[in-house]
Write a protein that binds this DNA or RNA. Structure first.
Lengths: 282, 282
DNA sequence: TTTATTATGAAATAAAATTTCATTTTTTCT
DNA sequence: AGAAAAAATGAAATTTTATTTCATAATAAA
């Protein structure tokens, strides 16, 4: 486990002086890995043995061993974090920041996702008579993408990004149908209503949304996709990509469940597209 | 740079004894990070000062510093790689694999992207009279998403995922228009033709595609998005997500270029959506 | 072969970390 | 509240670890 997280977790198990050490470390871990025990003790205004005891409390063999763990945490921890784009960033800087934030969000989303729910969703999808994907705004793109993917599986699949059509479709749904409702906020009124309507008509409703939202309450299964809030402040960016990755997961689970025969069929669809392309020279 | 790679690279710059050290380290780096300089010297059958000199030759401050670097290299050793989904994978396994592959692809895409091209593209976009996004299949989703984003900027923006409409739009384009053509393969005939048509009509054509493809040849600027080929074998998965991240980058560059006044306007659009939502309780 | 250069390790030194133990602080119990 | 027990802390001593110095050995150049 990441030692920085561990420090944060065990912060209240620590004594007063040890907490001082923790604070100094958390404030600037990258400095600490180049400090001696004496330097760190001075920084935190405590004695060297206290630093040593602090290290042992975190289940390391001593200060040098602790530094090793810390170094490893930094190596893993720093690459993909949410770094905010700044007014004066160069093209290179904001490009890097956005890619990194996106990766960080994917990492987060993966952690928030429950494999059991994925499994159950795939189960239901493979047995569905009809699959519908509903989303609005940025989530409409995700729904659109999902339709594209599932269309290749040769199953009845529809997608609507229009409130009225969604309502009509929801009202006409029945048992055996699976309705997937996508919304990052989970608070878009009309979508919550659509989910509710589908549920009333005995369709299975799967929500791709954040935990504990009004939409989540209307769903049989909630596929939780939590991403860092503020990356989506002005425009939905990360959440949408995490949702797309989830669609990939569902589509993959679907093909795996359907077995190898089915995958051959998929290859045929793919091959049929080839004639519309320029051939590769290599 | 990864210190293990560095050791491998500089192997022939090293003296005989130092090479012994290198070999022991490369054979089992994870053991070494828990060894003292004396233990390592003994392992390699050489003296302690030799280990020390070895460390310095690799531009570290000494043995402890070297161990730190080594620890970090090990932590980074298995970042995000493309792991292939297997027939018998559990839901948890394929979920993890897909998320990781997606992250690996984003990392790759970021590296293949040229910041100068991004910068020039943003320049052109901010000055465009009209912006069009064209894509087919999975790339249509990306184009759709782009339209969504740029629409908020209150600039004339269109998107078509229909061949005929794309052709018509391309024929009607003129100088000062920017046409963004999205295709992972860069070989879809109709799209290459659309790019060509737009170019003939003096529009600026920006391609979001792979390097060296027929489409790339028709473009004024190519935004290279290389991802690992075989993740897209049956379905476009990673490439599409990398393209979306690139759209985020362009949109971000656009707002930055337009300045702070412009970002206030964006906030208004965002706020106007609020009434259609259930309020948060917290 | 001789000389210059570089590589190497033994021993000494320096630095860093750990242990021990006395003192202080905090908690618990009456 | 006050005494006793427990826990926390740091000074100093000790131990471990790393580095430097320097003499010697190996290697390359003349």
């Amino acid at each position: 486990m990441n030692i920085l997280e561990k420090i944060t977790n065990e912060l209240d198990m620590l004594s007063k002086s040890e907490r001082k050490v923790a604070e100094v470390i958390l404030a600037s871990p990258s400095t600490v890995i180049h400090s001696s025990i004496a330097a760190l003790a001075k920084q935190a205004n405590i004695s060297e043995p206290t630093v040593n005891r602090f290290c042992r409390r975190l289940d390391t063999k001593g200060y040098p061993d602790f530094k090793l763990h810390l170094a490893q945490s930094l190596a893993n921890g720093t690459p993909y974090v949410n770094r905010h784009v700044d007014e004066n960033d160069s093209a290179e800087e904001y490009t890097d920041k956005i890619f990194e934030s996106t990766m960080a969000s994917l990492e987060l989303a993966r952690k928030s996702l429950d494999a059991n729910d994925v499994n159950r969703s795939v189960d239901l999808l493979t047995q569905a008579n009809k699959i519908s994907f509903f989303g609005l705004g940025a989530s409409a793109i995700v729904a659109h993408d999902a339709q594209n993917k599932f269309f290749r599986f040769n199953v009845p699949v529809v997608y609507f990004d229009d409130i009225l059509m969604q309502r009509m479709s929801a009202i006409n749904s029945r048992q055996g149908d699976v309705v997937i409702v996508i919304s990052h906020t989970g608070r878009t009124k009309s979508l919550v209503e659509v989910a509710s309507l589908a549920k009333e008509n005995d369709a299975t409703v799967i929500g791709i949304t954040t935990k504990g939202t009004p939409l989540a309450k209307e769903c049989s299964i909630v596929l939780t996709v939590d991403v860092c809030e503020d990356t989506d402040l002005y425009m939905p960016m990360s959440s949408r990509i995490a949702q797309l990755a989830l669609i990939d997961v569902l589509a993959t689970g679907f093909t795996l469940r359907r077995g190898s025969k089915f995958r051959d069929n998929l290859k045929k669809v793919k091959d049929s597209l080839r004639s519309s392309r320029f051939e590769r020279k290599d």
